[in-house]
Amino acid sequence: MITVEDARSIMTECLSMSDGPATIDLDSPVVIDSFTLVWILHLLEERHDIEIAPEQADFPSSMSVREFHGYLATTFPDRVSRES
């Protein structure tokens, strides 16, 4: 099950690739550019065996860790914890 901490880990790693903060708050907005989106999708597949095609990823251009986790929980309810 993907937890909110797993979601934070993925987003934090993506941000650190572009010299972003080392840690992020659950409710801080994070800009999702095309590079970040591709890296998020790669980490989801690599770590959690969840595949989302880039053209099917309907992430907003900015979202928080909590929103990202909520998106995953809605899209993959059997693979993601319902914690918030």
Rank of each mutant, 00 (worst) to 15 (best):
19 D>I: 00
44 L>Q: 03
46 E>S: 14
7 A>T: 12
26 L>M: 15
31 V>M: 08
39 W>F: 07
23 T>F: 13
31 V>P: 01
63 M>D: 00
42 H>Y: 11
6 D>W: 08
10 I>Q: 05
23 T>L: 09
4 V>K: 13
55 E>V: 12
55 E>M: 07
53 A>V: 10
4 V>E: 08
52 I>M: 08
71 Y>H: 04
70 G>P: 15
69 H>E: 07
22 A>L: 15
27 D>Y: 03
20 G>T: 07
5 E>F: 07
69 H>S: 06
58 D>R: 02
11 M>T: 05
7 A>L: 02
13 E>G: 08
36 T>I: 09
17 M>K: 14
23 T>G: 09
20 G>V: 00
52 I>W: 00
56 Q>S: 13
10 I>G: 06
14 C>G: 11
72 L>N: 10
72 L>P: 14
28 S>M: 09
57 A>R: 03
52 I>Y: 07
28 S>R: 09
11 M>Y: 03
57 A>K: 04
55 E>K: 12
47 R>W: 06
24 I>A: 00
58 D>G: 02
41 L>M: 06
24 I>M: 04
50 I>C: 02
14 C>K: 01
15 L>F: 02
71 Y>Q: 01
52 I>C: 02
37 L>T: 13
70 G>S: 14
30 V>W: 00
40 I>L: 05
49 D>N: 12
11 M>I: 12
9 S>C: 11
32 I>G: 05
18 S>N: 10
18 S>Y: 06
23 T>K: 07
71 Y>P: 03
61 S>V: 04
25 D>N: 14
50 I>K: 01
5 E>Q: 15
23 T>H: 12
45 E>C: 05
46 E>F: 02
36 T>G: 12
68 F>D: 04
43 L>W: 09
23 T>V: 13
40 I>F: 10
